[in-house]
Design a protein around this nucleic acid. Structure first.
Lengths: 353, 353
DNA sequence: ACAAGTCTTGAGAACGCTCTCAAAATGCGC
DNA sequence: GCGCATTTTGAGAGCGTTCTCAAGACTTGT
């Protein structure tokens, strides 16, 4: 299987268009100082010959690599992966990132790094040395890992931290976890709920804290208190089951639960079933993530939709633009929205007491 | 944000180890003809300095790019994406591909291409020119698109076709759709079902045909016929709903349905609900894909698990090994397995008649 | 029409690595 | 210990692009 057709290079195009190689380069990069008729002639040759610049060569000589690197959490096995995530982060990131980067000639690579490994730095360092990306996109929980941000700063690589409100190096983009939690809480309050519980994520994720803050704030607005109706999970199903059982066992029982992930919401559904509670009649439920799963549960779940694709898209724009002020402008917020479905309703009269 | 620490190059390592640049290159590539003590010294320097070869430079000079390109179907919008796929193909491909390629220094990039576009060739051609990957992994429905395979052959790029049994250029890997469908059908026959329906995928996907073949074969083994209990969908929920409704409306009604995707299985669940049929008591249901969704439906679905990660892993191995015989050996099968859950049971006496 | 600028073009070096090929060092048989 | 084959090492070219810098072609003001 030998390489039949040699790749078209910038030299071939230059020859075809009867100009120097440098002029072609200028046209490719939309550089200034090329007379219109020449620019057109070169463009025509490029199209005719189907020329596409080699990423490797561009990286070699130029200062840009046209590669963005997205760092995602990696579970150790496929089973863990499915059990704990169940989200479509990678799919959505690719959709948002690839579509936004493509028109500018940028490609996106995904690197899976296990946060709990002691080799985080080494793995990331190797990826950066090998790829020399123009920008890095960090997702939780890497977004606030100081080892990682320090490494990137040291190497002088621009990066975006998704799901982080902490100021600091890099561009911070958040999906407004505080506001989203408040949104969910208010929705329940408007339906008449007074005892609204929250299953939060692990402390390692700062967004867990923000969601708790938003939940408490919305309760306070309505003159309510959290009544200690807080439980923690690790976003996975099993942890959610334990948390939901504990909350349901409380007396008086909460009439509504906000779960910090779809997996934990599914677990809550299961816990309610065990306890003989109907959703939403006996217990209202709101989920975070809005992955495809929750449209098909019984009942379909009201959920907070995380605009992952949109947020990544925004991050890519800023990284490509090399907007030096983006970081300074503080946190960029792409707000999440509430998608009402059938798992939320007014509480029964007896609960309203 | 200037680049603070300059990248370590092969030259730095050579200097540190007191050898020529070429010797370092040999060590990196596990080349022959380096004396052990020198090899060790160079290895030590590499580790000490944290050197990692630049992918771009390797590609520029050598014949390998250390990049594998995975081609996935791209929906036009996020909504379509979620509606029609709902699968975790990309996640699984990355998991299988990245973990397998990494030890050999290979990276995997994902390219999303819209099959229905007329520009398939142009998009793929551009990606190949830009990246010059050492291998390409095609997923359905691209696996059997002659425009794509011809392009790859013409460029002399090795590729693997996943989910294809057609011999032809490239390495074909299948998850054994025929056998998997037979497995599902036999499972139902053993439970006592006689009227087993199938919701197949679109004709554009050859695996749809193989699943039908397997289904019919298993029926024939048991002395049964298909009774025309076949419907088609496009793997998406809506199409599955229509197909399931049509099958349920048949008289006599099938006592079991095999759906060719999780989304269509969910739709079948919905159609059963509409018709007042209990699953599995009135209707048994088996799904294909086994994405995280089907563990959480009510009831959880018995499903055919597609070993996507394993198959991609195998494909990566073969592409990296540049095993020239792999293609000739015919089709490589990584068989799917049946995961029994609660959506299948013996039919009611009345149906068994 | 001339000097002083600005715009346009191109030549050549550089990026970090592997390839090819030649030179030096080593091993082997006698 | 000698001549030959073999292994080990290194020097230099080349990959496809962009960068830097200098030269040539235009403007403009007078």
């Amino acid at each position: 299987m030998a390489r039949r057709r040699k790749n078209v290079t910038i030299r071939d195009v230059a020859e075809d268009a009867g100009v120097s190689l440098q002029t072609v380069s200028r046209v490719i990069n939309d550089g200034p100082n090329v007379r219109p008729h020449l620019r057109e002639r070169v463009r025509a040759s490029i199209k005719k010959m189907g020329y596409v610049p080699s990423l490797a060569a561009q990286r070699m000589s130029g200062s840009r690599s046209y590669i963005l690197l997205a760092i995602n959490d990696r579970e150790r096995t496929l089973a863990d992966w499915r059990e704990r995530r169940g989200t479509d982060w990678v799919d959505q990131m690719l959709l948002g990132g690839v579509l936004t980067g493509a028109p500018h000639g940028y490609r996106m690579m995904v690197e899976l790094i296990d946060t709990r490994s002691e080799h985080v730095e080494r793995e990331l360092g190797a990826a950066i040395s090998a790829l020399q990306p123009d920008g890095v996109i960090l997702t939780p929980p890497h977004s606030e890992n100081p080892l990682i941000t320090a490494l990137l700063e040291d190497r002088g690589i621009r990066f975006a931290r998704i799901g982080s409100k902490a100021r600091g190096p890099g561009i911070a983009l958040t999906m407004g976890d505080e506001g989203a939690a408040a949104l969910a809480t208010r929705h329940l309050i408007e339906l008449g709920h007074r005892r609204i519980a929250m299953i939060a994520g692990p402390e390692q994720y700062s967004l867990s804290g923000w969601r708790i803050t938003g939940w408490r704030a919305a309760l306070a607005e309505a003159g309510l208190r959290d009544e200690g109706l807080l439980a923690r999970g690790d976003f996975g199903f099993e942890s959610g089951l334990a948390a939901a059982r504990a909350l349901i066992a409380r007396a008086p029982r909460p009439s509504a639960i906000i779960a910090s992930s779809d997996q934990m919401a599914l677990a809550t559904l299961e816990a309610a079933r065990e306890a003989g509670l109907a959703v939403p009649d006996d217990l209202s439920l709101i989920s975070f993530d809005n992955t495809p799963i929750v449209r098909f549960t019984q009942p379909p779940l009201t959920a907070i939709d995380q605009p992952i694709a949109e947020t990544v898209s925004r991050a890519v724009e800023l990284l490509i633009a090399r907007d030096e002020e983006a970081g300074a402008q503080g946190v960029i917020e792409v707000p999440a929205a509430l998608v009402p479905r059938s798992s939320t309703a007014a509480p029964r009269a007896v609960d309203r007491a």
